[in-house]
Every structure is written in structure tokens, then in C-alpha cells.
Computed example of a mutant assay.
Amino acid sequence: MKIKNSLKSLKTRDRNNRIVRRKGRVYVINKQNPRYKARQG
């Protein structure tokens, strides 16, 4: 999992990417291709 300041660039890398808020943190998740995982902070 990558930890980035800005997730907007990671969201555009794959069309299945979703931005999700969990427990006050922002995540990029991808069910079809799980290597696109990232957290903000």
C-alpha cells in the first residue's frame, strides 16, 4: 500500500479505482486489480 499526500493522481491510473473514507482516512481501493491500493496521510 502506498501512502500519498494527494490521491487524485492515483485515482486516474485505473478506471476501477474508488476513493473511500474509512475511520477518517482516505483510501484508494480497486477490487479488480488490488495492487492499486493507497492511503492518504
Rank of each mutant, 00 (worst) to 15 (best):
residue 15 R to Q: 07
residue 16 N to R: 15
residue 6 S to C: 07
residue 7 L to N: 01
residue 35 R to V: 08
residue 5 N to R: 10
residue 37 K to T: 08
residue 19 I to C: 06
residue 11 K to I: 10
residue 41 G to I: 01
residue 35 R to Q: 08
residue 16 N to S: 15
residue 21 R to E: 10
residue 34 P to M: 01
residue 21 R to W: 11
residue 40 Q to R: 09
residue 26 V to E: 13
residue 27 Y to G: 00
residue 15 R to C: 09
residue 5 N to A: 11
residue 9 S to Y: 04
residue 29 I to H: 08
residue 24 G to L: 12
residue 8 K to N: 13
residue 1 M to K: 06
residue 2 K to N: 08
residue 8 K to F: 02
residue 36 Y to G: 04
residue 10 L to M: 02
residue 14 D to P: 09
residue 18 R to H: 04
residue 39 R to H: 00
residue 36 Y to H: 05
residue 28 V to N: 00
residue 18 R to K: 14
residue 25 R to I: 01
residue 31 K to C: 06
residue 18 R to Y: 04
residue 20 V to R: 11
residue 8 K to Q: 04
residue 3 I to R: 11
residue 18 R to L: 05
residue 4 K to N: 10
residue 35 R to I: 08
residue 12 T to S: 12
residue 21 R to Y: 10
residue 23 K to C: 12
residue 21 R to T: 14
residue 21 R to L: 13
residue 24 G to Q: 01
residue 6 S to N: 14
residue 24 G to T: 02
residue 39 R to D: 00
residue 7 L to F: 09
residue 1 M to W: 03
residue 34 P to A: 03
residue 25 R to C: 10
residue 33 N to A: 12
residue 10 L to Y: 09
residue 15 R to H: 14
residue 37 K to Y: 07
residue 28 V to P: 01
residue 13 R to M: 14
residue 23 K to F: 09
residue 21 R to M: 09
residue 38 A to F: 09
residue 4 K to V: 14
residue 3 I to T: 09
residue 9 S to P: 12
residue 41 G to E: 03
residue 11 K to V: 10
residue 6 S to D: 15
residue 20 V to I: 15
residue 19 I to A: 08
residue 23 K to Q: 12
residue 12 T to C: 04
residue 1 M to L: 11
residue 16 N to H: 15
residue 25 R to Y: 08
residue 19 I to P: 05
residue 29 I to W: 06
residue 3 I to P: 00
residue 6 S to G: 03
residue 14 D to S: 06
residue 14 D to K: 08
residue 9 S to I: 04
residue 36 Y to R: 10
residue 38 A to N: 02
residue 38 A to Y: 07
residue 40 Q to F: 02
residue 11 K to L: 11
residue 22 R to K: 15
residue 30 N to W: 13
residue 31 K to F: 13
residue 21 R to C: 14
residue 8 K to L: 07
residue 35 R to F: 09
residue 41 G to V: 08
residue 35 R to P: 00
